[in-house]
Design a protein around this nucleic acid. Structure first.
Lengths: 337, 337
DNA sequence: TTGTATGCGTTATCAG
DNA sequence: CTGATAACGCATACAA
């Protein structure tokens, strides 16, 4: 592959001159510039991004670590980030990787080795201390979907407690009194926070949620189906189902329909996330909007704009990037009879 | 950020020695090695991937260009590639970007500037000549979901004609005689090839598909809804709907259900791709399995294994990576009454 | 306006 | 076993 040197030789000029025309540098004769450009084209010259990154001490690249690309939720997240990256002509380096601490750590470290200017990280498994450490040493480090007090100015997150409250209150306002929850079995914050919100709201209405009314399973459609089967088998009585996410809610709905229940006439079901699926399934799922694409864009912008900060001002440090879910009414929820 | 030089100084040894312990080089004293490792840990040393790439003339990275990450189909594709990349400890550089020739070109060029070792490219808009050129100059260049004769050994693709035939034949075998197609309006090969396959199969059965039985729209759920509305408005009669993909099929189904048709009792609907959605929607969609994740993995492996080839042998050049869709029977297709 | 020289962080080839 | 030193491709301060 042709280098700057090759084309300098071909043009009979020095490296410096060529470098100048590449970077639209200021002081180059017009005739020379044109000639060099022509030669570059002819020889198919492409600047070497690695060499550039080395000498410039920065790389015009954005690292992204996600849990699971095949999940539509993450795909949307990635999409938001990618849009910003393209807008700013920044290359994205992607490292997806399960919800294991070791994998997440490896992903972040690899990205750091590539000297990405900034990174947006979705990490559920890594402990706070580790993440705080990374955030401190890399200003362009942004956590998405997780809140850590010490580095709150580097967190873009959704208020899951408010979300839990919201879904419960919506059901309460329609007269529902008997609740079950199909929750995620993963030992991460999200399900606990949502549950906490649900319990808050129910508590205010004088309702307590027994442990037997909660079933934990994998956070996908199949998990939802299984959880609902267990609830039914156990003889739970309820008119309202609160899903950890849309997939679980849809799965629960499938089981209910298969068992002859009418949704929403007999039982109301509400999801969380508002992914595509919630509009596809039948009945269409009433759910909570998780503005993940918007959040992803904000995270990417923040990461990139923080990248060159030497350190955060006190004002910066107080900033916060909290999002709150809103309810999307579709067809799966009705007044209780 | 600490460099190799810093830690050499701290350890009182030369750069070379440090470099050796980093790369597990052969000739270093055990005591020295241990001491240096300790210092590296203390100083938080991280090798600079850019510098490495520069001197090694290769980067242990895989470029990926996709059309649209938020589409579940591409998300699955990306997931397959990512799995291989992780397995081989290769970093993936992602460039997604609409279906415009200019964007696709830009994406490929950026990746080339980063000197990726290999790349898997999903390109619908770029012309063959350009792609052939890229493929020729980069052995690790693999096209996915596109077939170009001249570089067939660098293409991993699905036989869309066979797919079209298969969906039509399945309907024919169930007694259907009146067909409509909801197709994609994009001017790319896929819809035309699928249509060609459909026409082939129908032709063999003595059925011709009038242009009025085909409606072109955007290849998503909304497009499917609109296409079906148009078909209905126009007064088309049919018992079988062939969708360009699952989203369009699901959209068409939505419209049908909304209009009071029973699926599959009155009308049978078949999709294409077998994305998640086909299992979520109601009735569950009968569709064609597009083994995209498997294909993506193959493409990634091929790209990486070709990366270091100086040139392709005659034998290599004859190889071909064609996949054929298979039918997945679910609930949206029934014998005609 | 153009050229020379130096360094970015690493690896690899030599000598010691 | 270890240490100089020359690349790798590029940008830039300093000269000319």
């Amino acid at each position: 592959m042709a280098t700057i040197k090759d084309i300098a030789k071909a043009a009979g000029v020095s490296l410096a001159t060529v470098s100048r025309v590449i970077n639209d540098g200021p002081k180059v004769g017009n005739e020379t510039r044109a000639r060099i450009k022509k030669i570059m084209k002819e020889m198919g010259y492409r600047p070497n991004a690695n060499a550039r990154a080395l000498v410039n001490q920065k790389s015009a690249s954005l690292g992204v670590v996600l849990a699971e690309l095949s999940d539509p939720f993450f795909a949307t997240l990635a999409h938001g980030i990618e849009a910003i990256a393209r807008e700013k002509s920044v290359q994205v380096l992607l490292s997806s990787g399960s919800i294991e601490a070791a994998t997440e750590l490896k992903a972040i470290e690899t990205l750091l080795e590539h000297r990405v200017e900034a990174m947006v990280v979705h990490s559920k498994a890594l402990d706070e201390a580790t993440l705080i450490e990374f955030a401190r040493q890399t200003p362009g480090f942004i956590l998405i979907n997780r809140y850590i007090e010490e580095i709150k100015h580097q967190c873009v997150w959704l208020d899951n407690i408010a979300g839990g409250q919201l879904m419960a209150k919506h059901m309460l306002s329609l007269g529902h009194k008997k609740f079950v929850v199909v929750s995620s079995k993963y030992q991460i914050d999200d399900p606990y926070l949502r549950l906490e919100g649900i319990r808050n709201a129910l508590g205010e209405a004088g309702i307590t949620l027994p442990d037997s009314a909660i079933e934990y399973s994998s956070p996908d459609q199949e998990g939802g189906e299984i959880a609902m089967q267990n609830l039914l088998t156990r003889g739970c009585e309820f008119s309202a189902v609160l899903g950890y996410n849309d997939a679980m809610a849809a799965g629960a709905m499938t089981t209910l329909l298969d068992q002859g229940y009418q949704v929403p006439d007999d039982v109301s079901v509400i999801g969380y996330d508002d992914v595509l699926l919630s509009r596809y399934c039948r009945p269409k799922l009433t759910t909570l909007r998780y503005p993940i694409e918007m959040m992803a864009k904000q995270a990417a912008e923040l990461a990139l704009s923080n990248a060159n900060k030497k350190q955060f001002s006190e004002e910066d440090r107080q900033k916060t990037y909290k999002y709150t879910p809103t309810i999307i009414k579709r067809e799966s929820v009705l007044k209780t009879r």
